[in-house]
C-alpha cells in the first residue's frame, strides 16, 4: 500500500518554511527522563513523523508542544515566537490541535457536540445571548453546525452524529477524535498513534483522511505511529527517539538505512 504513489497530489504539495521548532528540550518526571536535549523542526504543510520504541518519549514530545507538560529545559518556537514552555490554551488559540493515544473524547456527549466543542475558540457569543439563544447566538450555532457537518461528511460518520461517543466502536471513536481536532481548523495537527489498534481496512481509511487533510487544507501534521509501512508512506521527514534522545532525523529512506535506528528497533544495548 503505497499511498504516496497512488496520490500524486501529495507529491505536488509545497512544503514551506519552518513553522515549529523545538530546541534542546528536556523533560523528567522525578527520576524518569522522558526527554533529553531533543531538537527538531517541522515545516509548514509537511507530514512529520515521530517514531521510536515504547516509552521513547514520543507522546511526551507532543505534550510539550501543546503545553500539557512543561519541559525543564529547552525552547519551543512556534510561528516566530520563542517560548520556554507552551500553555494549552495558547497552543489552541495559535492553531495547534491534537488527538490522543488513549482516547480522550467527551464520552457523555454526542459526536456532534464533541466536534462543536472543538470549535469553542471560534465561538464568540456571551452567556446571556446563549441563555436566551437568540440572534447572534443562534446564528452562530447554525453556522458552526454547518462547518461541523462538513467534517462529519468528510470522515463518513453521518450515521452516528447524534450518538454519545462512549457507545461507538473503537475505530469510529478514533475518527471522532480526529474530527474534533479538525473542527478547530488547525494549522498544525498533532496525531498520537491515530491508527493504533485498527485493522488494515480502518488503517487505510485513516491514512486517506490524513493525506486528504494535508492536501486539501495544507494542514501541517506531526504524526506518531508504530506501523513502519504507514510512516514510510505518509511522511516527508521522520524523527526517531529512543530512551528520550533523538537518534536520527531525515527522510524515510535515510532513517530506514540508519544503523542507530536499526539497533534501537532490534533492541541492541547501548
Amino acid at each position: 500500500m503505497n499511498l504516496r504513489d497512488a496520490e500524486p497530489a501529495t507529491v505536488a504539495r509545497r512544503v514551506g518554511d519552518v513553522i515549529l521548532a523545538v530546541e534542546g528540550v528536556s523533560l523528567a518526571f522525578g527520576g524518569v527522563k522522558a526527554l533529553t536535549d531533543v531538537s527538531f523542526d517541522v515545516r509548514e504543510h509537511e507530514v512529520r513523523a515521530i517514531i521510536g520504541p515504547n516509552g521513547a518519549g514520543k507522546s511526551s514530545m507532543l505534550n510539550v508542544i501543546n503545553g500539557v507538560y512543561r519541559p525543564q529545559a529547552g525552547q519551543i518556537t512556534y510561528r516566530g515566537t520563542k517560548r520556554s514552555a507552551m500553555e494549552p490554551h495558547i497552543a489552541a488559540r495559535a492553531g495547534i490541535a491534537r488527538t490522543f493515544q488513549s482516547l480522550a473524547l467527551f464520552k457523555g456527549m454526542s459526536v456532534l457536540d464533541n466536534m462543536l466543542a472543538g470549535r469553542t475558540l471560534l465561538m464568540k457569543s456571551n452567556i446571556f445571548l446563549q441563555a436566551l439563544r437568540i440572534g447572534p447566538a443562534l446564528a452562530e450555532e447554525t453556522e458552526h453546525r454547518k462547518r461541523v457537518e462538513d467534517i462529519i461528511d468528510f470522515l463518513e460518520i453521518q450515521h452516528v452524529r447524534k450518538t454519545p461517543v462512549g457507545r461507538l466502536p473503537y475505530g469510529l471513536q478514533k475518527r471522532v477524535d480526529l474530527g474534533r481536532a479538525l473542527a478547530a481548523e488547525p494549522k498544525v495537527l498533532l496525531l498520537d498513534e491515530p491508527m493504533a489498534g485498527m485493522n488494515v481496512e480502518e488503517k487505510q481509511d485513516m491514512c486517506r483522511f490524513i493525506l486528504d487533510v494535508n492536501d486539501e487544507f495544507g494542514t501541517t501534521i506531526v504524526l506518531i505511529e508504530h506501523d513502519m509501512g504507514v510512516v514510510m508512506d505518509l511522511s516527508d521527514r521522520v524523527v526517531v527517539l529512543d530512551y528520550g534522545r533523538k537518534i536520527a532525523d531525515g527522510t524515510p529512506d535515510e532513517v530506514r538505512a540508519n544503523q542507530a535506528v536499526i539497533d534501537a528497533y532490534l533492541g541492541v544495548k547501548h
Binding site: N66, P88, A92, R98, F100, L105, F106, L121, A184
Partner: peptide, 13 residues
C-alpha cells in the same frame, strides 16, 4: 467537556 475529560478540554481551548 470539563466533566468528561478536562485535559482534552484544555487542549481544545
Amino acid at each position: 467537556a470539563t466533566r468528561d475529560m478536562d485535559v482534552a478540554a484544555e487542549v481544545i481551548g
